[in-house]
Simulated assay, not measured.
Amino acid sequence: MNPIEIMVSYWPRMLDGTLMTLKLTILGALIAGAISPWLALVRSHGSLIAQTPIRIYVSFVRGTPILAQLFLVFYGSGQFRPELMELGLWNFFRDPFNCAILVFVLNSTAYQTEIMRGGIQGVNLGEIEAAKAIGMTRMTILRRVIFPHAYRIAWPALSNEIILLMKASALASVVTVFDIMGRTRQIFSKTFDFSIYLWAALIYLAITSLFVFGWHRIERRLNRHILPRNNANAVS
């Protein structure tokens, strides 16, 4: 079969793998995105005692391969089956998808925490002091001053982290979660045609291109009040 015939014959499997890749990436990034700002806040302004466990966690995750983390969670959890059954967690850990999501969340949370820490530390202290001066509560300052500015600063780096997470999802197939690469290997084992890997690469490229386009649109919207000033400076 030629490359076109290969894709026509096996497109349902490739579509299934694409949906699994998107599911892993979106769920992992969203859950990590909900946790990381608060950890970043502790890393930026918390006491040393509060910061220490987060530092250890971030250092461990960033210093070890995500493949090793997948093996530790999926295969390692079986070593503690009696304890997990006693806690009612074995049904969660016996599912490869749950283990993959857990690893991607833990991994992305570590990276997003450091990215958001940089964003929080980049917020102008004068704006925070001004917010305090007009009587804003701590939560209001976080919601209306610190987090909005921190996300504007961190936005480009966050896009890179999500793209890397999507590419890392290709490793999920080692724990029998069949994403794009998992389906690609299955098809190759039947056809022995390397063109299926080209199709997989094109699918990844298409997803990444659409994501970058959408992310940049959101970034322009977040910075719409800044762009006219920059344009005016460029003209002058």
Results as ranks from 00 to 15, higher is better:
residue 92 F to Q: 00
residue 32 A to C: 03
residue 30 L to C: 09
residue 2 N to L: 08
residue 146 I to A: 01
residue 236 S to T: 12
residue 174 V to R: 05
residue 15 L to F: 12
residue 90 W to Q: 02
residue 21 T to P: 01
residue 201 A to S: 06
residue 129 E to N: 11
residue 57 Y to E: 05
residue 218 I to T: 13
residue 130 A to K: 01
residue 35 I to E: 10
residue 95 D to Q: 11
residue 93 F to V: 01
residue 117 R to Q: 12
residue 216 H to L: 09
residue 163 I to W: 03
residue 94 R to P: 01
residue 103 V to C: 06
residue 163 I to L: 05
residue 199 W to Q: 02
residue 68 A to C: 15
residue 148 P to V: 10
residue 184 T to K: 01
residue 4 I to L: 15
residue 184 T to A: 00
residue 4 I to P: 13
residue 11 W to E: 04
residue 26 I to Q: 03
residue 201 A to T: 06
residue 122 G to S: 14
residue 67 L to V: 15
residue 185 R to D: 05
residue 112 Q to W: 04
residue 221 R to T: 15
residue 165 L to W: 00
residue 40 A to Q: 09
residue 197 Y to H: 00
residue 85 M to Q: 09
residue 128 I to H: 06
residue 97 F to Y: 08
residue 8 V to D: 15
residue 134 I to A: 02
residue 223 N to Q: 14
residue 139 M to V: 11
residue 12 P to Q: 06
residue 224 R to N: 14
residue 140 T to M: 07
residue 143 R to L: 05
residue 215 W to K: 03
residue 208 T to D: 13
residue 109 T to D: 11
residue 85 M to A: 05
residue 25 T to Q: 02
residue 212 V to S: 05
residue 137 T to V: 02
residue 174 V to H: 06
residue 144 R to W: 12
residue 170 A to F: 08
residue 76 G to A: 07
residue 38 W to T: 14
residue 213 F to N: 10
residue 2 N to H: 09
residue 95 D to M: 04
residue 200 A to D: 02
residue 149 H to A: 14
residue 13 R to K: 12
residue 217 R to I: 14
residue 72 L to K: 12
residue 60 F to A: 12
residue 108 S to D: 10
residue 38 W to H: 12
residue 204 Y to S: 03
residue 196 I to T: 07
residue 12 P to Y: 11
residue 25 T to K: 00
residue 166 M to H: 07
residue 154 A to I: 09
residue 142 L to S: 01
residue 30 L to F: 14
residue 228 P to S: 05
residue 64 T to K: 11
residue 103 V to F: 08
residue 235 V to N: 14
residue 48 L to G: 13
residue 63 G to Q: 04
residue 105 V to K: 05
residue 47 S to W: 12
residue 27 L to F: 12
residue 189 S to E: 07
residue 210 L to E: 07
residue 213 F to D: 09
residue 123 V to W: 06
residue 38 W to V: 13
residue 9 S to L: 10
residue 3 P to N: 01
residue 185 R to E: 11
residue 22 L to V: 09
residue 227 L to I: 15
residue 43 R to N: 07
residue 80 F to I: 09
residue 78 G to T: 05
residue 40 A to N: 08
residue 166 M to N: 10
residue 181 M to S: 09
residue 115 I to E: 02
residue 92 F to R: 00
residue 153 I to V: 12
residue 133 A to F: 04
residue 207 I to F: 08
residue 144 R to N: 11
residue 223 N to P: 10
residue 213 F to M: 15
residue 146 I to F: 03
residue 233 N to I: 13
residue 75 Y to V: 04
residue 97 F to D: 00
residue 161 E to M: 14
residue 185 R to S: 07
residue 146 I to V: 14
residue 15 L to Q: 03
residue 12 P to F: 10
residue 156 P to C: 15
residue 192 F to Q: 06
residue 128 I to V: 14
residue 226 I to P: 14
residue 17 G to E: 00
residue 181 M to Q: 08
residue 26 I to C: 03
residue 212 V to A: 04
residue 28 G to C: 04
residue 102 L to G: 04
residue 32 A to M: 02
residue 209 S to R: 12
residue 107 N to H: 15
residue 167 K to W: 09
residue 126 G to D: 03
residue 8 V to R: 15
residue 206 A to P: 05
residue 151 Y to I: 09
residue 33 G to I: 06
residue 157 A to V: 15
residue 183 R to C: 07
residue 116 M to T: 13
residue 27 L to H: 06
residue 234 A to P: 13
residue 204 Y to E: 03
residue 78 G to W: 04
residue 16 D to L: 08
residue 110 A to T: 04
residue 148 P to H: 13
residue 227 L to A: 15
residue 115 I to R: 00
residue 194 F to N: 15
residue 201 A to I: 01
residue 111 Y to K: 04
